[in-house]
Every structure is written in structure tokens, then in C-alpha cells.
């Protein structure tokens, strides 16, 4: 357990101002805007995943929102000036499933609940971390699902889904999950 295995090791260039603002968000997680917290978490997830190498070194780390965007400007504020590894983070809204291929983290809006299963299986083994706050997201093949427990935003993870996509979630992240799913949902 030394620093050298710390998953943040490649994390550089987060400006102090933003970190402070994130901290402020964290300190008041139960404060009115739930999506402020979720936006920060979306970014934080990126810090605890072992990502496959980027196709181009200076390519952006894209965090996408699929479907009706519940974040609004919050996500753009949260990601502005941040980076994961050497890649700076940018938000992107997509409405076309094919566009998800360019994403690293994909937030699937609840508006897409009806065809999410189909959408997720269409991603196949693409290395995209899928996150959503819709119920049964993990059962439908998602990787991280937000939930609110005691007024706090928490999450569940499905390690098997992540592993299938070639992603490894850090134990530091996993230990915070409310439940940890280790098997894939049965194919139907």
C-alpha cells in the first residue's frame, strides 16, 4: 500500500480553485442540487479506473451524456479546466448510440430507460464506463448506478460489466459502493 500504486499517479493539473469547489460540493452533498454532486462524481469515477491507453495522447477525455441532460451547465462548470491523466476533460451530449464510441464515461439519462438494455449491449466490449441513475441499471448491463441513501448520493458497481469492457475499477472506488455486483445479468 504505497503511493506508487496509487491510481491518481497520472493525475496532474487540477486547479486548486476547482478542487476547492468540488470539496465544497462534497461537504454539502445533501445540499439542494443533487446533480452538482453527481457531476463531480462523474469526474471522480474517471480517477479510479484503469483506462486503456488513449488512441492519441492529446485526445480529450470525453464525458458524455446520452439522452435528456439532467446536469445543464453544472457538468460544463465541473469539467472545465480539469484533466484525467494527461487528457483534459470535456463534456459532450449525444443522442445517437453510435456516438458513444468516442466517450470514456457515459452517463445514460433516465429518459433512455426503455431501450437502455439494447443500447448497452450495442456498446459490446467498448471501453466506456457507463453510469446512470435509473433503477436496475446494473441489471441491464450498466457499470455504475447512482442512488441516494440517507440524503447522500451513493453508488453501486458491477465489476463484471466493467471487466467485460476491459475496465478495472480501483478497490478504493469499489469499497465505497453500496453494493457490488460481480456477475453479468443473464442474457435474454
Amino acid at each position: 500500500m504505497t503511493r506508487s500504486t496509487f491510481p491518481f499517479r497520472s493525475l496532474l493539473g487540477i486547479s486548486a480553485v476547482l478542487v476547492l469547489s468540488i470539496s465544497a460540493v462534497l461537504a454539502h452533498a445533501s445540499s439542494p442540487n443533487e446533480y452538482d454532486v453527481k457531476a463531480a462524481y462523474l469526474y471522480n469515477f474517471g480517477l479510479f479506473v484503469q483506462w486503456p491507453a488513449a488512441p492519441e495522447p492529446d485526445a480529450a477525455f470525453t464525458i458524455c451524456v446520452f439522452g435528456v441532460d439532467p446536469f445543464g451547465k453544472v457538468l460544463d462548470r465541473t469539467l472545465a479546466g480539469q484533466s484525467i491523466g494527461s487528457q483534459s476533460t470535456i463534456p459532450r451530449r449525444i443522442s445517437n448510440p453510435q456516438d458513444a464510441l468516442g466517450c470514456r464515461i457515459l452517463f445514460v439519462s433516465s429518459s433512455e430507460e426503455n431501450n437502455v438494455k439494447q443500447f448497452l449491449s450495442s456498446l459490446g466490449k467498448t471501453a466506456v464506463l457507463t453510469v446512470s441513475d435509473m433503477p436496475q441499471f446494473l441489471d441491464r448491463g450498466g457499470m455504475i448506478q447512482f442512488m441516494v441513501v440517507n440524503n447522500r448520493v451513493r453508488f453501486e458497481v458491477n465489476l463484471a460489466a466493467a471487466r467485460r469492457a476491459g475496465l478495472t475499477l480501483s478497490s478504493q472506488l469499489v469499497k465505497l459502493a453500496v453494493t457490488v455486483e460481480t456477475s453479468l445479468p443473464p442474457e435474454k
Partner: peptide, 22 residues
Amino acid sequence: ARIIAFNSASALLFNDPVSAQK
């Protein structure tokens, strides 16, 4: 202190005092 600092970083980030307490 180093071990705790390492193990509590994610708890701080995801605002999870229970995990930090563990």
C-alpha cells in the same frame, strides 16, 4: 498516517465518512 491518507482519499472524494471511519 500514510496508509490512512491513501485509503481515505476516495472516501473524501465521494463524501463517504463511513468508509473513512472504517
